[in-house]
Nucleic acid binder design. Structure first.
Lengths: 172, 172
DNA sequence: TCCTTTTAGTTCGATATCGCATAATATGGT
DNA sequence: ACCATATTATGCGATATCGAACTAAAAGGA
């Protein structure tokens, strides 16, 4: 979590990594700040638009929709970088509400296959339409090129954090 | 929530907003994807580095540190774009653990003033040192200029979402 | 084959998140 | 002064998150 009014670390004109240490810390902290708030706001917006459902549900259903062929709980947990216990819980809710089924995985006796039901596909259509409405409103207000500018740098930052997951930095 | 392997909406060379509709949706979805995963990963990294503490605690303490003069719970909730009940809970934990005090607000009988204790300032120092270590590791691996490139666009996106909070788009 | 190690998933318990309802106080109009 | 309305914070209950411990099955080595 981070807040709004951090002392802004203004990028030096050359975009170099030669910022003085406190400025670099402020910049990093500010970026994480914004990312947390954006995640917070977008989750709240989704839940306001689709009462009773969360972005966790939406994400899983979208993933299954794209992959038509079903996925295991662990694959889903990894795709979202979530602990598997969290994914277990999310899937139990989706199953109880009839959007997915969970069958034994024929390839691996320990595993399961999560698949969308017809109700799941129908729900996806409605959720997607609602999200599209929100996105249209967003695009109306957003400066052109904002998302294009963000995408590659976010992907890089995510990849680096992902790689660092296995190399924790702990107190000396 | 969103996952990793979305069909990537590759930015058109001109960076215009004239993307075809499905590509625009994929781009938006992909950006939200990355943002959610980054928030997830950075929160997990903080909690691994400071066991027993969360980014929620860190954010509040940092905010109070910068403002030396204390803040009300509502100000804090707004700074982080969180519901006030969530902030009430976070502050109760911080108070119980001795990092902050909550006194009546002399300016407003309904309100309170949250202030750091000496223990809170000491904790902030330790947490900040730990975060700085993690940031150093991050900067070693990050392409130069990544954060500088992200900062202004994230701030803009956050501002737009913030403004949209009051103008919900609901099913017709 | 037997045994050790790894992997997939769940249960359980602790904590966090957050909507709804409520109490206390402030504000603004008359 | 009085009252209607808005604002600040909290209690409560439902749900979500996630680590630790566990079970079952697979993988790999002797």
């Amino acid at each position: 979590m981070a807040d709004t009014d951090s002392t802004e670390g203004q990028a030096d004109g050359a975009g170099l990594s030669s910022l003085p240490d406190p400025a670099r810390a402020a910049l990093t902290f500010g970026v994480m700040t914004e990312i947390n708030i954006i995640a917070q706001l977008s989750a709240a917006a989704f839940e306001a638009a689709m009462p009773g459902w969360s972005v966790a549900h939406f994400g899983v259903v979208m993933h299954l929709m794209r992959r038509g062929d079903g996925a295991t709980p662990l694959e889903l947990a990894r795709a979202f970088q979530l602990p598997k216990t969290t994914m277990t819980h999310t899937l139990q809710v989706l199953e109880k509400r009839g959007l997915v089924t969970m069958q034994p995985n024929p390839r691996d006796g320990r595993s399961k296959l999560v698949q969308l039901t017809d109700a799941g596909r129908a729900w996806q259509g409605q959720a997607m339409a609602q999200v599209a409405r929100n996105q249209a409103a967003l695009h109306e207000r957003l400066a052109p090129g904002t998302l294009q500018a963000l995408a590659p740098h976010l992907a890089h930052l995510r990849a680096v954090l992902d790689a660092m997951r296995d190399t924790p930095t702990r107190p000396g």
